[in-house]
Computed example of a mutant assay.
Amino acid sequence: MTEAKEVIVTGAGIMGASIAWHLTKAGAKVTVIAGSGAGGVATPNSFAWINASWGNPEPYFRLRIRSMAEWTRLANEVPGIPLQWCGGLCWDLPRPELEAYAAEHSAWGYGIERVDRAGAARIEPNLTELPDFALYVAEEGVAEPVAATQALLADAERRGARLLTGVTATALVRANGQVSGVDTSAGRIVADEVVIAAGAGSPALAATAGIELPIGTPPGLIVHSRPYQKLLNGLMIGDRLHMRQTAEGRIIAGSDFGGADPGMDAAATARDLFAAMKAMLRGADGLELDFHTIGYRPTPVDGFPIIGRAEGAGGVYVAVMHSGITLAPAVGLFAAREILDGDRDPLLDPYGLARFTQ
């Protein structure tokens, strides 16, 4: 019997949690370094829309649609993941672009329904401003990001993973072109492989082993109401505002799903955004702003994920992307297989780090 592979996962957001869970389930000895606690930094600030919506070339669409299916599998396997296929109503593009998106993605098998003003009113009866034309995708949904992450980490711990909360990864340990562990605020930890899934903190950590990750971290502001009576049935992706209602009844919104530009005065931006959100909802007279978040989204410069081993530095696997909520189940599954068995799923082929040096 071969000895279990030891893997360190740096980052305890949704991506790190999924990879750690899948590795542990497959028999690896996993240590998760959770510097900011379970949930990470970007994950709590996520809009949490699970989709394969517009703007995706077909290979990326295929990865996203596969991951949507993997969300259902993961929620069935892990207790406590709050997953809801609530549907998404979208009109955040001019009509010709919406029509082009609908034609393209429908041909790929995405379940898009064209709706008029009356149809939109049936789907979201509490909207005060209704589009003349919109698209509705019943199979889109949400996973409450922090609760899902915590559920994955708790189940990984139950299966034998070690979670180091409040410990910061400071540098990769490298010798003879091979990474053999991580230096942390609590000392050195050795392993057979290190997974970099630390979101916006990934480039700095990778750089300690001479690995360059071409990633930007644009900020996004999202407002959160106090819990309130049910006003929204699903995701609303409008031309000026994107919003949804969480499982605990909070209505969250941004100028797009990635969040608003905070501007020079984030508090003022949040107040204006909240006022616009409240004005769009019938029955929202008692709705109150609770807080706003500013997330820094780890976004590779070409907009697509970086998933795979880093060339020239053995023992390192990178998983950094903006669409972490949508992609977490599939990437967790595929990364675990590649790390433990060397099998790379064809859906990941376009997303290796080497594409930036070719």
Rank of each mutant, 00 (worst) to 15 (best):
K5E: 12
E6T: 15
I8A: 08
T10L: 09
G11K: 12
G16P: 11
G16H: 11
A17P: 01
A17V: 09
S18Y: 01
T24Y: 12
A28Y: 07
K29F: 00
V30G: 07
V30W: 05
I33C: 08
A34V: 10
G37H: 08
G40T: 05
A42Y: 01
T43V: 13
S46W: 02
F47E: 01
N51G: 06
P57W: 14
E58A: 05
Y60M: 12
N76E: 15
E77Y: 08
V78Y: 09
I81Q: 02
P82S: 10
L83R: 06
L89R: 05
R95Q: 12
P96E: 09
E97G: 02
A100T: 05
H105D: 07
W108C: 04
G109E: 13
Y110D: 11
G119A: 13
A121T: 14
I123N: 03
L127Q: 12
A143H: 01
P145Q: 12
Q150P: 00
A156K: 08
E157M: 14
E157V: 14
R158M: 15
G160I: 07
A161Y: 13
R162F: 06
T165Q: 13
G166H: 04
V167I: 10
V167G: 05
T168G: 07
T170H: 02
T170G: 00
N176D: 15
Q178S: 12
Q178G: 06
S180Y: 02
S180G: 10
S185T: 14
S185V: 10
A186G: 11
G187K: 03
A191M: 02
A191R: 03
D192L: 02
V194Q: 06
A197V: 00
A197F: 00
A206W: 09
A206D: 11
A207L: 09
A209T: 13
G210K: 12
E212Q: 12
L213H: 04
P214V: 11
P214N: 11
P219C: 05
G220M: 05
G220R: 09
I222C: 07
P227T: 15
P227G: 15
K230N: 12
K230V: 13
L231N: 08
I237F: 14
G238S: 14
D239W: 04
H242P: 03
M243F: 13
G249F: 08
A253V: 09
S255W: 03
A260G: 14
D261W: 04
D261T: 07
M264K: 12
M264R: 14
A268K: 11
T269D: 06
A270S: 02
D272Y: 05
L273G: 13
F274M: 05
G286C: 08
L287Y: 01
E288S: 10
F291W: 07
T293D: 06
I294M: 04
Y296Q: 03
R297W: 02
R297Y: 07
V301R: 11
D302Q: 06
D302C: 03
D302P: 02
G303A: 09
G303L: 05
P305A: 04
I306D: 00
I307V: 14
G308H: 02
G312K: 09
A313V: 15
G314N: 04
V316H: 06
V318E: 00
V320E: 03
S323E: 00
S323A: 10
G324A: 10
G324E: 01
L333C: 12
G342D: 02
D343L: 00
R344L: 13
D345A: 07
P346D: 08
P346M: 06
L348G: 10
L348Y: 02
P350V: 09
L353W: 00
L353Y: 00
Q358V: 15
Q358F: 09
